[in-house]
Write a protein that binds this DNA or RNA. Structure first.
Length: 269
DNA sequence: CTTGGGACCTGGCTGC
DNA sequence: TGCAGCCAGGTCCCAA
């Protein structure tokens, strides 16, 4: 499931092959992939456009085009972007042929991913909260944003309007590292706890980018390699295993309909 | 207004 | 062994 570190990795590894190229031919195999307008309009609108730059915002990947418009992709649960795969397999939903002879395949087993072609990228991403790795994202900003919500802190971290880019895995990891129980109310955290959480979020996301993302499910990098960030997970997807800090058994509960892993001794309610 | 829960989607797993 | 039914979770939408 691609979260911020996975999308950042995809952006970084795609950029050398895509930036400066134009779309020579586009085939949209699944019309439901396209959001907001007919697939044919996207196909025609893309052909001939040059990719000026690639940007990640939250979990969104943005292709800035030469006409000022943007192609925006969200991989949701099982989407992946494959560069020049040997075969265009059954989960392919769109194929983008580039002017350098390479092609990019949007593959997506569960078909939850979406893309937009828009004049103004802000129309799609305007609701997103701050970027956790931006310089301006201080613990004060986090504290101010959390203070407006009386919801479980885990739910707050998953809310892309509060903070962009964190998903289920990294929310669990950040809360464990900060020693905060996932069901604590967002507006109840002490100043010290918010500072610890802010620090842990940034440290964990940076480390995960360094490991090229976490390949727990279907995530693969554009050239087919896996990420290794999941080898460093302390609690995420580790229910029943011993806590690496205190040895207690890691528990699983459900918060906001999401499987949530935590250490009952390190993270007290 | 805020918050919670279901829909979307399909492969893989569980249990009868 | 076969298959129904549940589960995974990012985001949107609707209801309380």
């Amino acid at each position: 499931m691609p979260e911020l570190p996975e999308v950042e990795t995809i952006k970084n590894e795609l950029a050398p092959w895509v930036v400066g190229q134009s779309f020579a031919k586009v085939a949209i195999l699944d019309a439901k992939l396209v959001c907001g307008c007919p697939a044919e309009k996207v196909r025609r609108g893309l052909v001939g456009q040059k990719v000026e730059s690639l940007e990640r915002r939250g979990k969104y990947l943005i292709f800035h085009l030469s006409n000022g418009g943007s192609l925006i992709m969200h991989l949701r649960m099982t989407g992946s972007l494959l560069l020049n795969p040997r075969e265009v397999e059954r989960y392919a939903r769109a194929v983008f042929h580039l002017s350098n002879g390479r092609h990019l395949v949007f593959s997506d087993r569960r078909r939850l991913g979406v893309l937009w072609l828009v004049d103004d990228a802000d129309a799609v991403i305007c609701k997103l909260g701050p970027e956790p790795l931006d310089k301006g994202f201080t613990s004060g900003v986090l504290r101010q944003r959390l203070s407006r919500h009386r919801i479980p802190i885990k739910a707050a971290l998953l809310d892309q309007c509060i903070l962009a880019g964190i998903g289920n895995m990294y929310a669990d990891e950040a809360l464990f590292a900060a020693r905060i129980h996932p069901l604590r109310k967002a507006d109840d955290l002490s100043l010290a706890e918010v500072r610890a959480l802010h620090n842990c979020i940034r440290r964990i996301l940076r480390a995960a980018i360094g490991s090229k993302g976490a390949s727990v499910d279907t995530y693969v990098r554009p050239e087919g390699e896996l990420g290794t960030a999941h080898f460093n997970f302390k609690v995420a997807h580790r229910g029943g295993e011993p806590c690496p800090v205190c040895g207690s058994t890691i528990e699983r509960c459900v918060v906001q309909n999401r499987g949530t892993y935590f250490c009952p001794r390190c993270q007290l309610l």
